[in-house]
Design a binder for these strands. Structure first.
Lengths: 341, 341
DNA sequence: TCGATCCTCCAAAGCGCTTTGGACGCTTTC
DNA sequence: GAAAGCGTCCAAAGCGCTTTGGAGGATCGA
């Protein structure tokens, strides 16, 4: 059933039917009712392709997920983000286009989305140090929002980000307040912007308290469980082990806990852990009382905010780029306590 | 830059340019080269919308992710599946359309995708008991593949699934062989097909060994970490606790381990655990030696297979529905051992 | 040499929708 | 009673592409 048939069916012109369905004023309310009734009866829905060809708007948002060619991993964070964003898109009548692309071909993916007119806007995920994509998207001129930021903090692009620096600074200060002086940082890949900022926060806090940065207790890797386990295991085996861990992901923190307990140590007493917690649906940090003390920020909420912001940007681009920074909570759990002496 | 401009630029007709780019034979190789060169120089890519309006094919695959209204969770498994499928789509020039939909509105989402002509095929995720979607999609007549199966095992639809029944049957038999008689089953939601099959496998194995099914050691919930922790904690506190756990997800299994260790028990000696392992990128089951003994089947691979199958189905629908069942490996890890006496 | 055949190319129709530029009849205004 | 205005509707022109149905010239076989 297409517009033509529906119109013929009703004894009306396509113009009128189209207008009736799209809420234009120049159509009698009675006929509008008739049209809407007929449409829903015949289960008519306009062909998206034709519609967007005619209007020039595609009513779709593109997300490009870079799959690093060497790691080939799908960040679980991504699922929750998509969930949040998708909710907003659905409500606004937008579709979501996903492109899973090896990161050496990302360039083409963005260009292609723009040139082929398949999306009205784009969300950039996982910005890296010196990320070329921001410049690229400015060049192709498609509205976009970065989930995260580029290290260079210019203000002429839109982003939604967590205040990673402050979160990790606060967490580190908290550990210092508890008397910890030997702290380990199990960071994400420091080619990623968020990891850079977290490290900065960590170092700033150490400096503020006159504590040294201990390179042997610093790692930067893809945030898997086994990474946490391996790293913590090695560090704890050293003669002068750390008494506290700052960890970039709940998943990795679970690996750390495994290593801690394997060694017969007790978390929260012998070893303190603070982790970042993206508040994932499938990864709640315990129940009422959090297992881990954590810097928490819902990535699902970030998805919602990003989507809303992007739709706004598409509707009123003249308002210029917009930014939103989410502060992470520092929630106390059972994994922190005074430094043992 | 569109086709018309490009054609004018080259002094050719749109027809010829289109044919040259699409590899039709009736165009001189020299002009084809010229056209391709010009296209890449001007960074020309055909407008997808126009293209699909003209061809009737949208070159996109739809995935509808049901977000259960009560749980609101995004299964991490989904990310890996999408990663695998997306790889195949990209290679074949297909786009992926995601629809995140509350499960009470799913119906509309499918109908809409079909009616609006926005996709050429659909992947159904997480089939439930008496899932109405299969009938629905047959009705709307869009090629589709189910990731999983409907409990009614009719053969007139296409699916890719793991042999969940056999996997859990084998796992249970293995535990029985180790002397375990009191086994707990921490299953996924048994409104889901996969969970039903796993339970069947579990019960079949018990029956084969003349062991009783112990209702107090059986749970069925969304597969989070804290579910595993809570359930195991409660069960282990009972006077006659289980000596082994069969768990439906690695994530949940980590919760079980937490409860086990919290109680001062040792996994693999005091308590045995076998879990299903979807082989997620971010959730490797340990390193060289698996932490958990597990029934393993890569969901990323399932995504690839599903995508390939669907593209095949779209190209040659006359070949009828196709099915693919993946057998899960039973890989030994450190979490199983003889039953303590 | 002539018609048939092949190789290249093109004009124009059409995919299903939106939107421009009226048309038509009726009411209002002076 | 004519002009203007209003409310409703429509025919037709696109949007950017593919594809049908030739056209025109070169080549070939008889």
């Amino acid at each position: 059933m297409n517009l033509k048939e529906l119109a013929a069916n009703l004894g009306l012109s396509q113009t009128t039917v189209s207008r009736a369905l799209n809420g234009y004023p120049e159509v009698n309310e009675d006929t509008r009712k008739r049209v809407i009734a007929a449409a829903s009866q015949h289960n008519y829905r306009p062909n998206t392709r034709a519609q967007s060809l005619a209007t020039g708007r595609s009513m779709a948002i593109g997300h490009v997920i870079p799959i690093s060619t060497n790691h080939e991993m799908m960040n679980p964070v991504f699922g929750d983000f998509i969930g949040g964003a998708g909710e907003i898109y659905a409500r606004a009548g937008y579709d979501m286009m996903l492109s899973v692309v090896p990161d050496d071909a990302e360039d083409g993916a963005y260009r292609s989305m723009a040139q082929r007119n398949s999306v009205d806007g784009i969300v950039i995920h996982g910005p890296r140090r010196d990320d070329p994509r921001i410049a690229l998207l400015k060049e192709v001129g498609l509205p976009f929002i970065v989930h995260g930021r580029a290290p260079v903090d210019d203000t002429d692009y839109s982003y939604v980000d967590v205040n990673n620096r402050r979160a990790f600074e606060r967490a580190t200060l908290h550990l210092a307040d508890l008397g910890h002086t030997r702290m380990a940082l199990l960071n994400g890949l420091e080619s990623m912007d968020f990891a850079i900022r977290r490290r900065e926060g960590f170092e700033a806090a150490l400096k503020a308290r006159g504590l040294p940065f201990l390179p042997q207790f610093h790692r930067s890797e893809e945030m898997t469980e086994s990474y946490g386990y391996q790293a913590a295991r090695e560090m704890l085996a050293q003669p002068d082990p750390p008494t506290a861990f700052l960890v970039s992901s709940l998943i990795t923190a679970m690996g750390v806990r495994r290593a801690v307990e394997e060694r017969g140590l007790q978390m929260g007493r012998d070893i303190s852990i603070i982790t970042h917690d993206d508040d994932l649906g499938y990864f709640k940090n315990g129940g009422e009382v959090p297992v881990f003390t954590a810097t928490r920020s819902s990535v699902r909420e970030a998805g919602r905010i990003t989507a809303e912001m992007l739709l706004g940007l598409i509707d009123t681009p003249q308002n210029g780029p917009r930014q939103h920074i989410m502060e992470a909570d520092l929630t106390l759990g059972l994994s922190t306590g005074p430094a043992p002496r």
